[in-house]
Design a protein around this nucleic acid. Structure first.
Lengths: 399, 399
DNA sequence: GCTATTTAATTCGTAACCCGTTATAAATGT
DNA sequence: ACATTTATAACGGGTTACGAATTAAATAGC
């Protein structure tokens, strides 16, 4: 257990104040004091330090003063957008997406590289990522020295704490220390995270979970991922691993263990169609799901069947996740949502059937089809969160 | 988020020191300082306060001094066993077990009431529990006024935070505010907890998980429960619910959803035998599992088959839990373990088959067949933990 | 146009906490 | 008996948070 000293105390309260300013837009000190339950005096001290460090700014102009309100007007405080810049990236098998954001998480530039990568050695991927990051930074009119931190989201099993990618469909090798590799290449602190975790925090900051401090997100892409938000923080299992939902067992079939990915993985859904040359080409280019969508619209029976099987498998899995975590909301994201009604309806039906009666109505299912930028923005949020937490010891204890 | 003030700081460090003393037996101040990484001066201040409050005692006599060690000898500190007494209880369908423990968790008296309860109204159960607690306290040579706190463990879904029992096989009603009921009846603070959570903390304090700060426990009794220890604390889902593993879905069968309890619940295993009058009687008396054990030894094919099916279902479920949490150890407890080899072997086989290759060897499976006292002692540990955490504001800030 | 009023934010003083250093206490070894 | 070694206790410094009083900046009323 970490020992509690004044430094920790200050770090906690600072983070609390900073996060309150981030979440509740331009906000006066008094309101911060009310929300955080810190005394006005403490809030003044902390905000003074934050102002001194340039992390926040007073907002003079747009004082939307309630008329008929007497007294000294409140001065609103807000994040200083230019206090830091980070890069967020989403690395997937068919494309890479990068965004540069400011301290508020506003996207300054984005870059999508539609490159197919599949079980490549570390050097190849590092080359591509390095190139993407550098270009995206230039597009934002910045140089790498202006970037404070980089966070990259990967499919598969990622150990955030150590920076290792334990296993991922885009890497040839297992246990790749990718964070260290990129940190040295870019000479900028770089962290890695599971793509599911990244978009989970993204939804908490910018998306469909801004109002919640607990929720669960399930990502349905090439790999099937899980993100759990618990008390406004990402719940990373023992050791910071992000595990592979696709490995979950759905039962015993005639041919042995039936795992989720064999029913609902991207290749399981699309794989049956490999015979068709045009479709195979679309898959190779990362357009598999949109192509599949078109085929489903055209009443392709085989694909509709695959989509329904996948939806059923995912619905059962969600029911199990809800049984374990009982979150107020489950957000579903990922390319498989593009399969449309056959998939979604059978998912909903299976979920309704499988959710235990006692938990009926506890969790709300939300489908979100944000673009890949949003995943990258989520990765940026992970990077920003770590900056928020870091002591920034500039205006330390009394100069 | 809780605001950080000196009081919180002190509470954290106090808990840290107190817990170190609890875990590492008689221990000197210096060793406490080394383990907690608090300065010796802080440790001295905190231990002085703890001594003042009577929570710990210096140990003069058994100074097992290393000879050839010069200098002032260390004085070992240990918990004051008599600083508090708590009652822990395990309430199950076929029996209730109570223990009274001292501040260290040592059992002062225990009492088992072999009473069958099944979907009773709150009043009936409250009568029985009240009687059991009172008798157990008297057996310990104490009066209820000497008892500082009571914790009761129940099967089913228990909301620790609010004191409600959401659903339990022994209650006729759902959403019973049992903590409040017993608190008024006994005029002693009473909390409720899932039996699985109770024995999880029990294993952390006294049992097979003393060396770990993360682990998972699965309880196989009438209901199937889950306990997760995360960073030395019980991980209670959003809202403090403890959910019912039995509701987990194992797949779709010919007759619809197949849930774990339909394969591995006590009644699923034993239920097929109801025809036999003697066995039915044994089940009614809560001796079902031991009777089943005897039948299995006698090569009863139907029961062996049921046990193997159950073991397989549990093995798959454990693999899924490990996929999600990746704990270093999984502890299995509960009456179903008494089924013996057919159950355990098929469990192990199914687990080995179902665990994803990447997680092979990450988790160690441990089977524990502690008696019911141990569950009750775990409940006592839950009560004690809350006492440890409470401010004890006696020797507050400067008299 | 001036003063009273109201509300926001800061300043000052107090209390609590942790830490590093120095002093005291209690043993052993010579 | 005296030096040596080691464990605690005592003291002073620095940081933090909080409450009360003070200053700041606006409106309302005459």
């Amino acid at each position: 257990m970490k020992t509690a000293d004044p430094e920790l105390m200050r770090a906690i309260n600072r983070l609390n104040v900073l996060d309150t300013i981030r979440r509740h837009g331009p906000i006066s000190r008094i309101e911060i004091s009310e929300r955080t339950e810190l005394s006005t005096t403490t809030v003044s001290a902390i905000t003074a330090s934050l102002l001194d460090d340039g992390l926040i700014l007073p907002r003079h102009e747009g004082d939307i003063r309630n008329e008929a309100v007497r007294g000294r007007p409140r001065v609103a405080l807000e994040l200083n957008p230019d206090a830091a810049r980070v890069v967020g990236g989403k690395i997937a098998a068919s494309r890479m997406v990068f965004v540069v954001t400011n301290f508020r998480g506003d996207v300054l530039s984005k870059l999508a590289l539609p490159i197919r990568i599949d079980r490549q050695p570390i050097g190849v991927i590092a080359d591509l990522v390095e190139d993407g990051v550098r270009r995206c930074v230039v597009d934002a009119g910045l140089s790498l020295e202006d970037v404070d931190s980089i966070c990259l989201g990967f499919p598969g099993v990622v150990e955030h704490r150590t920076g290792y990618i334990r296993s991922s469909p885009i890497f040839r090798d297992t246990n790749v220390d990718f964070a260290a590799e990129m940190s040295t290449r870019l000479s900028t602190p770089t962290i890695v995270e599971s793509d599911a975790h990244a978009i989970t925090l993204g939804h908490h900051w910018f998306g469909r979970a801004r109002d919640l401090e607990d929720m669960v997100l399930i990502s349905l892409e090439q790999t099937l991922g899980l993100g759990v938000l618990h008390g406004n923080r990402l719940f990373r299992g023992a050791g910071g691993l992000s595990h592979n939902l696709g490995d979950l067992v759905l039962g015993m079939g005639p041919n042995g263990i039936v795992r989720l990915f064999s029913q609902a993985g991207e290749s399981a859904i699309l794989g049956e169609q490999q015979a068709d040359g045009r479709f195979a080409e679309a898959i190779r280019l990362g357009r598999g799901m949109t192509h599949a969508q078109a085929l489903i619209k055209a009443d392709d029976d085989r694909l509709i069947g695959a989509a329904m099987r996948a939806g059923e498998a995912v619905g059962l899995t969600i029911a199990n996740i809800v049984t374990l975590f009982a979150p107020p909301r489950v957000i579903l994201v990922g390319s498989s949502l593009a399969l449309g009604e056959p998939f979604l309806n059978s998912l909903r039906d299976a979920y309704a059937l499988a959710i235990p009666p006692s938990l009926k109505g506890v969790s709300e299912l939300v489908f979100d089809d944000s673009s890949d930028d949003f995943w990258a923005q989520g990765a940026a949020a992970v990077a920003l969160y770590e900056l928020y937490e870091s002591p920034w010891s500039t205006t330390g204890p009394a100069l």
